[in-house]
């Protein structure tokens, strides 16, 4: 017996073999019919994928966890809004992406207010540290931090597609559905985002 997200206990299903795993679409359909254990499986399947996507997007693990929680809550609440014509992953990534964008907008507003509230001499602008020399930093943790920092310095429209394409490795078609822009635009954003990152991380990449 297991406790599930619906605060009820029910007999756990015999876990299916990997090659016989129910698809995401099957799971959400089961959940729509009232099988709350299917929701548990969805959470298990997606929580880390989404967390990594949102974390790279918003830059903070704490906020990312909160957004992923909210994403699952929305799935729970709006489960009947999902129609099988779309891939479930597209739907859930769209929800997470929208929530992340909302968070970024909120943060931008907060930052604007806090900057305008300060006197000129008090303003503490965060200026990109272009002077760091990655050649001297060999630690992979630091390298990761630098990459993460530069991803976060991209504008959200480039950042999102770079994460979805190069970190999450989704197809251009799926990204196009998630962010609701044509495939051509997605490809162009990915290309420009990569070139921007490549320019910023030149020294680091040369070492590789």
């Amino acid at each position: 017996m297991v406790e599930n997200f619906d605060n009820t206990t029910q007999k756990s299903e015999q876990p299916k073999r990997r090659d016989n795993r129910p698809s995401d679409e099957d799971l959400i359909e089961r959940f729509q019919k009232g099988d709350v254990y299917a929701f548990d499986l969805i959470v298990k399947r997606y929580k880390e994928q989404l967390l990594n996507f949102v974390y790279r997007f918003v830059g903070s693990q704490e906020e990312a966890e909160d957004i992923v929680q909210e994403t699952f809550l929305r799935v729970y609440r709006k489960r009947h809004a999902y129609k099988r014509i779309a891939k479930f992953s597209t739907w859930i990534y769209t929800i997470a992406g929208n929530l992340s964008r909302t968070e970024l907008r909120r943060r931008k507003r907060r930052r604007m207010f806090s900057v305008t509230d300060m006197g000129f001499e008090d303003r503490d602008y965060e200026i990109s540290d272009d002077g760091h020399n990655p050649e001297t930093q060999v630690d992979s943790v630091i390298q990761e931090e630098i990459i993460h920092w530069e991803i976060n310095n991209l504008s959200p429209k480039f950042r999102e597609v770079i994460i979805l394409r190069d970190v999450q490795e989704l197809s251009y078609e799926e990204i196009s559905k998630i962010i609701k822009v044509p495939i051509g635009t997605v490809k162009s954003r990915v290309n420009r985002g990569r070139l921007k990152l490549q320019g910023k991380l030149k020294h680091l990449l040369k070492k590789k």
Binding site: N52, E144, I147, L201, L204, K208
Partner: peptide
């Protein structure tokens, strides 16, 4: 590098 970024856990 991007593909190999460390995956964080919940």
């Amino acid at each position: 590098q991007l593909r190999g970024l460390k995956r964080i856990k919940t």
